[in-house]
Design a protein around this nucleic acid. Sequence first.
DNA 1: GCGATTTTCTATAACGTTCTAGTCGACCTT
DNA 2: AAGGTCGACTAGAACGTTATAGAAAATCGC
Lengths: 337, 337
Amino acid sequence: MTSSRVTLADVAARAGVSTALVSVVMRDAPGASAATRERVREAAAELNYQPDRRARLLRSGRSRLLGVVFSVTDAFHGDLVTGLYNAAGAAGYEVTLSAVTPQRDERAAVASLLAERCEGLIVLSLESSTAELADLAARIPLVVLTRAVRSRAVDVVRNDDCGGLHLAVDHLVELGHRRIAHIDGGRSPAAAQRRRGYGEAMSRHGLDAQIRVITGGATEVEGAIAARALLDDPPTAVTVFNDRSATGLLEVARGAGLDVPGDLSVVGFDDDRLARLGYINLTTVGQDAAAITASAVARVADRIEGRPVDQREVVATPRLMVRGTTGPVKGLTSSPA
Amino acid sequence: MTSSRVTLADVAARAGVSTALVSVVMRDAPGASAATRERVREAAAELNYQPDRRARLLRSGRSRLLGVVFSVTDAFHGDLVTGLYNAAGAAGYEVTLSAVTPQRDERAAVASLLAERCEGLIVLSLESSTAELADLAARIPLVVLTRAVRSRAVDVVRNDDCGGLHLAVDHLVELGHRRIAHIDGGRSPAAAQRRRGYGEAMSRHGLDAQIRVITGGATEVEGAIAARALLDDPPTAVTVFNDRSATGLLEVARGAGLDVPGDLSVVGFDDDRLARLGYINLTTVGQDAAAITASAVARVADRIEGRPVDQREVVATPRLMVRGTTGPVKGLTSSPA
DNA sequence: GCGATTTTCTATAACGTTCTAGTCGACCTT
DNA sequence: AAGGTCGACTAGAACGTTATAGAAAATCGC
């Protein structure tokens, strides 16, 4: 059977009830007996009925649709999109994606979502200027992710990058490390925060003299390059801007005969899929995409439903994921701080 | 200002005409004088009118909407999505994305697109069984990308993986290489094709005795592991399953003091973003995402518009992107540098 | 000028759903 | 047993658009 167009009316006819009642059953709304509910469900299944979202949304003024702008080139956006689907589903919203590509800029992505009459927007990408974002926020509930925005008019949900490095350094110090270097993320937006966190935490432990920041980047290759620079005078531990970079560093360090974590402890940042693989098994600061995306959805839902919002910026707390690349300093028994 | 809801009726009232006429003007359909056309346009602009896509599509049976199922974890899918946006736009179709995530399987992604009443589906992901795909193809125009499907009932657009390795081996042989190894992609679906292509091409050049396939995988780490296995008895050239794996191999080879391409030439596969970076500058077989996606859109449009289709399977021709990791075989000169 | 066309426009009926305002019984309460 | 409340159900009107048919006005052929 070519299920050309199965409508409510077809299901209603088959079940011997009105279309309105079928609608009630499909929406799990109150107002139908268990018996007919069952009968309607059965009829719908037999006809392979699928509700037409357009008609549904057209009629009920609300669309319960969240537009998400993301970039296809950024791997971590994948994790965030994953979390957004989950969070939105739990909050009773649907998600429509609109991708930013080299040929399709953020403006186009946003425009497409507006034409679909989304009720709110969650923007992951980084192109737009602060002014554009503020403008957009005035027209529709908007949350910006993974990026600080210098405007009090825009809601932002971001990770506590600075605090994440405190966690990493604390962990290493507790293991007895004192010579701890940091490989930074270059011009990347979060890099400054993480560099700052490293410096603060080292100071807090009275290790100002040991502070050593090496230029790195966000990719495996940049991590590898930084690792080479490190090998002349290796520290006992290193915190790295992100997991990709840490992976490159691991490759080089192990290739040079260093034992990890025996000779060198390594802490990454992001907890991306790779970090969890057995071969890498990287200790890392987890961005907790689930928490970030849950906050983002909660915030945009607050705006949509007109609830008062106390603060513009939500900062998510990162978690340290201790795995196999960190261990006590060699030749040292655990010592109190 | 909250631009609540501006409808056709509002524009019609302002311009002093009927809604039907406004509709005609907005669609650039024949049946309105130039004068009123101008007047209506002006009214629409003043009210900042935006047509409601849902209502429009609901009424006119056609939606001109293409659903795309992709996976957030696969980097190459990003390039394909990019191409699909371009191709669909050129063909007069819109694109809606539906992501496959660890918590959202292909079935759910497809269901969501069906509810949006897409006219056709392009599926990039790899979970579904052949039977499921054949089933789906019976209900809606469907094209499967980047994967062979053992069913004559499903349209497929895929890369000529086998031919890609012919290109790679030909290139290396032309540079004088004879000892050429292949690092394969493990269980990955395209791996078998590429392995076969390698073997065929080696045979064609009379190099059966030199055939050497090493178990690898699709990631940097697996490439690195394979590289170690290679170092005991290095060939002069190697073809690698994909660029990520090749990157891992490069890291290890260079770390072990091998000069690339002086001591070892390396050819990857995919031409992903990383391969183009200066530091890596990898010679690789380009998948030509643009061509693949253009074919996919053309094919699904053919099905939607009922045009006859000659063959189920479209095989795209790959291109060799010669960059810095391949060069002529060196004599016995050892060179620093 | 008068019918026959063509052009410009309008009224009205869809599209598939949800919402509002009911109808009709069955079950209480006195 | 009469009135009232509740639950299950339905008819019909929306939502914002496009398609269809036809009315009004302009154009044409002679």
